[in-house]
């Protein structure tokens, strides 16, 4: 006959077992599973607390950033990849991006954004802007300590704050950055090969045309009033 309350005791035995085991859990993964705050992964290991567990993985995405190919202290705007095509602004689901194109003194469109604002209180980190960008200019950052005291300006991240170098991208998302670089190099090589083939074809066509013109000129008789007329060949 089953003792009334035995089910409850069984349950309590489970919790008691978990409680006692937590003192002897070697790797502290099963019974003490609360993680510490995600310290910045680029701090040296001896400065992290003993149970620090970086929960930011190499694919974590938080808010976007603009890429530039400058190194060191070069001006990021010199090598910014964004050409202000505004595709990301159109496709962004919560409409958090605002772009203004740059025009030079004559009114001609220079392929750069003069304003590129992302309102990170609206951004939902969905990564659609990254997917639709045809120039690999915008990718996701994993920086998450972005809180500040200014409600409107502080959460409106402007172009210069969004610009990060490709090296930084390699540091936070190494595999993705490498894939992207490989793909860009491949596409560039394909484009150059195509261009070279087109140039070669054009050159060949020009040479052929020049030859033909030379032939025609040679075949035509040279009209000399003093010389007797020779029959054309």
């Amino acid at each position: 006959m089953k003792l009334l309350g035995s089910g409850i005791f069984k349950g309590m035995a489970v919790t008691l077992e978990n409680f006692v085991r937590s003192y002897f859990d070697r790797d502290r993964k099963h019974h003490l599973f609360t993680k510490e705050y995600a310290w910045k992964s680029d701090a040296p290991a001896d400065q992290l607390p003993a149970r620090a567990d970086t929960t930011v993985t190499t694919r974590s995405r938080n808010f976007p950033m603009l890429l530039h190919d400058g190194k060191g202290s070069e001006d990021p705007m010199a090598s910014i990849r964004c050409v202000a095509c505004q595709i990301c602004e159109r496709e962004c689901p919560p409409q958090c991006i605002f772009i203004e194109k740059e025009y030079d003194a004559n009114g001609k469109f220079v392929k750069r954004p003069v304003i590129f604002d992302i309102d990170i209180s609206v951004c939902m980190s969905c990564q659609i802007c990254v997917e639709v960008c045809p120039f690999d200019a915008i990718v996701m950052n994993s920086e998450f300590e972005l809180s500040n005291n200014d409600r409107f300006n502080g959460l409106l991240v402007r172009r210069d704050a969004l610009l990060k170098s490709n090296d930084y991208y390699h540091r936070i998302h190494p595999e993705e950055a490498q894939e992207r670089d490989d793909r860009m190099a491949r596409e560039k090589a394909e484009k150059e090969a195509k261009q070279a083939a087109a140039d070669a074809a054009k050159k060949k066509a020009a040479e052929l045309a020049a030859e033909k013109a030379a032939e025609l000129a040679a075949a035509k008789p040279k009209v000399d009033p003093a010389a007797p007329t020779a029959t054309p060949q």
Partner: peptide
């Protein structure tokens, strides 16, 4: 509606005002 980089925030940004 809340201010986003369009509309009112944009207007104030254009006029150079700090939003408060």
């Amino acid at each position: 509606w809340e201010p986003t980089p369009h509309g009112e925030v944009l207007e104030k940004h254009r006029r150079g005002k700090v939003i408060s």
